[in-house]
Simulated assay, not measured.
Amino acid sequence: MNVRQAPEFPQWPQYDESERDGLVRALEQGQWWRMGGSEVDSFEREFAEHHGAAHALAVTNGTHALELALQVMGVGPGSEVIVPAFTFISSSQAAQRLGAVAVPVDVDPDTYSIDAAAAAAAVTSRTRAIMPVHMAGFLADMDALAKLSANTGVPLLQDAAHAHGARWQGKRVGELGSVAAFSFQNGKLMTAGEGGAVLFPDTAMYETAFLRHSCGRPRTDRRYMHAIAGSNLRLNEFSASVLRAQLRRLDGQIATRHERWALLSGLLESIDGVVPQRGDERTDVPSHYMAMFRVPGIGEDDRNALVDRLVEAGLPAFAGFRAIYRTDAFWELGAPDTTPDELAERCPHSEAISQDCIWLHHRTLLASEEDMHLTAAIIADAVSTV
């Protein structure tokens, strides 16, 4: 009997005849942009319904989704947006590109999502939005954050780039009462290579966002009567046709990933020196965008070398996000009046996680149970040499 020594992970993105049929359908309808075709409109309805939202607006990418949402929420020069210090840089840059100041706060050491108490301490009279990032598909503490929003009057913008299909105590992302932004970049849980979407809880915000994403031009305008300032953030018909197919298989993939993470996380927990991410149990349906774990105390250089060894062994492994205040990009515009070291003191968990965290691409969790054991064995062997 042959015994496999290396895992066999499925490729990503995944597609079948559904995507191919959608692309042909979009091609043959004769109109390839959203104002003349039907694919974007159909995708928006389906995505909104799937996530329990009143409205969805499809846009060019996830970064633009955040930027557009913040603009509609009134973020601009002179305002502040609270963001987690441990996140992908788009969370802060979306606010900074609007002329606002991004204010990093610490994250929970177990979930890696924004610490609600740290966010509360950072609220000022200039705060216009609080942006929880649902790290790896485990939702941030939406109960505490909703209470904070109600007490301060500062709205939430969920960065749900990792959280397609996730649920918090039975509620879908669009049922949590706040705006949410998604990404469909090539590595995401649903993808058309690029793309994004914003969920809106009310019609007025949605209509404003529609104008701003379409050069400020009303749908029925024939005389170039641009109503408000905007940009061209419209998604094309081909991308929407692919996303419609991707959405249909999302729940099945989430179920598989959930089963595999239950196995893999237990195996990782048994490895000396390895601590897997622990999601808040109130996230009753996590989407598992990443399989994340920490090797506390390893240090950034050794962590990076460990990632290289895992990749050489066949795992789709990556270093955790760098704390945003540790990047040059963060300080180019819209940065708070402080220093990286001062922010590091305020954000000790983000500082540590950014140096000792490793994540595996979610296609890892679409493999077999045998592959979970092989993956854990590779990690255990690599960690033992640190």
Score class of each variant (00 low, 15 high):
A6E: 12
P7D: 05
F9K: 03
Q11A: 15
W12H: 10
Y15V: 15
E19Q: 14
V24H: 06
R25N: 11
G30Y: 12
M35N: 12
G37W: 05
H50D: 13
G52Q: 11
H55L: 05
L57P: 00
T60C: 11
H64Q: 08
L70V: 06
M73W: 10
G74R: 05
V75W: 01
V75F: 08
S79T: 15
S79Y: 05
V83T: 06
F88V: 15
G99D: 02
A102R: 03
A102D: 06
D106S: 00
P109V: 11
P109S: 07
A118E: 09
A119W: 01
T127C: 01
A136V: 02
A140H: 11
A140Q: 04
A144C: 02
A146Y: 11
K147H: 13
G153M: 09
V154Y: 07
A161C: 04
K171D: 06
R172T: 10
V173W: 07
A180F: 02
A181W: 04
K188F: 02
M190K: 04
T191M: 07
T191G: 01
G196C: 05
G196D: 02
H213P: 02
C215Y: 15
G216Y: 00
T220M: 15
R222Y: 13
R223C: 00
A227Y: 02
L233Y: 07
L233V: 04
R234T: 03
E237Y: 06
S241I: 07
Q253S: 13
W261G: 00
W261N: 01
S265G: 09
G266T: 09
L267D: 01
D280S: 14
R282L: 03
T283R: 07
H288D: 02
Y289K: 12
F293S: 05
D302K: 13
N304K: 12
L306V: 02
R309V: 12
V311A: 00
F318K: 12
F318Y: 15
R326D: 14
T327A: 09
L333M: 15
L333I: 12
D337M: 04
D337F: 05
T339N: 06
P348M: 04
S350P: 06
A352S: 13
A352N: 04
L360H: 04
H361M: 00
R363A: 10
T364S: 02
T375V: 01
A376Q: 00
I379A: 03
T385W: 11
